[in-house]
Computed example of a mutant assay.
Amino acid sequence: MSRNSIAATMAGRHPSLAGIGQFRRADGMVGFEIGWPEVERDTIWARRLLEAWEVGPGDHALLTARNSEGPWFGPLVRAIRDTGVVFSNAEPYAWDARRVATLLSALPIKVVAGLSGEAADALLADDEAAARLAEVPVLWARGDAVEQLRRAGLQPAEMAMLGPVPAFSCPERKGLHIDPAEWRFTATASGLALTVVGDRLFRGRDIALDINGAIVEAPCTCGLPGPRINTE
């Protein structure tokens, strides 16, 4: 190990490894390593996503994520910081919905990312919190929250952790996007899958995805490149 590598490790940053995540498959949990160059590229992609939604300096964001979800939310957090967005954090559980409601009432929140089904239920049960939530321009909801939000008259955008990669809806709300330079959606006999195409520490081919939908190859009018998954 070089002197620079030793110094980086002692400072709390591994010279090559940014983190380790886990995702579930039918046969158990799969661990995956994440390198620093990957984080940098994923952050650039997240910045493009924010630009598509016209999120910029001085805007306010609220991230509802577990600590263990850093491998998925980390690049988005870095992109938010790089962009100059002011952000707050909350847990994606019903017991923390009061903090979400308080932040929605106290700040002009433009982005909520990672809203879960149980948190959505708690917020919708409070008329004032539901009204505040309806005013949020960029509401990225997890799959288990989308339907109840729509039934309540809101227009959420969807996000999903698809194996080792997070996917997000664009302003057109016509599918879940990922970076086509890093990942490729595939259709197999058993359903939708994911293949790693970028230069990443974790390699995988035809990783089964626990999501229903169709792969859309036509370019999206939002300007983000690559195929996407339409879950409608």
Rank of each mutant, 00 (worst) to 15 (best):
S2L: 08
N4L: 12
S5P: 02
R13Y: 14
A18S: 14
G21C: 09
G21A: 04
G21S: 08
D27I: 04
V30N: 03
D42H: 12
I44A: 14
I44R: 15
W45R: 04
A46H: 09
R48T: 11
A52G: 07
W53H: 15
P57W: 07
H60S: 08
E69R: 00
W72G: 01
W72R: 04
F73A: 11
G74A: 13
P75W: 01
R78A: 14
R78T: 08
A79D: 03
S88K: 02
S88C: 07
W95C: 07
A97Y: 03
V100P: 05
V100G: 00
A101V: 09
L104R: 09
S105C: 08
A106F: 01
P108E: 12
A113L: 11
A113Q: 05
L115G: 04
S116C: 08
L124F: 06
L124D: 01
L124V: 08
A125Q: 13
A125R: 15
D127T: 13
E128K: 11
E135Y: 00
L139F: 06
V146P: 03
L149I: 10
P156R: 12
A157W: 07
A160F: 00
L162Q: 03
P164Y: 00
F168H: 08
C170I: 11
L176C: 10
A181Y: 08
R184L: 09
F185T: 02
A187P: 05
S190K: 12
V196T: 11
V197S: 03
V197N: 03
R200E: 07
L209Q: 06
E217I: 03
T221C: 10
P225D: 13
R228P: 02
N230I: 00
E232W: 14
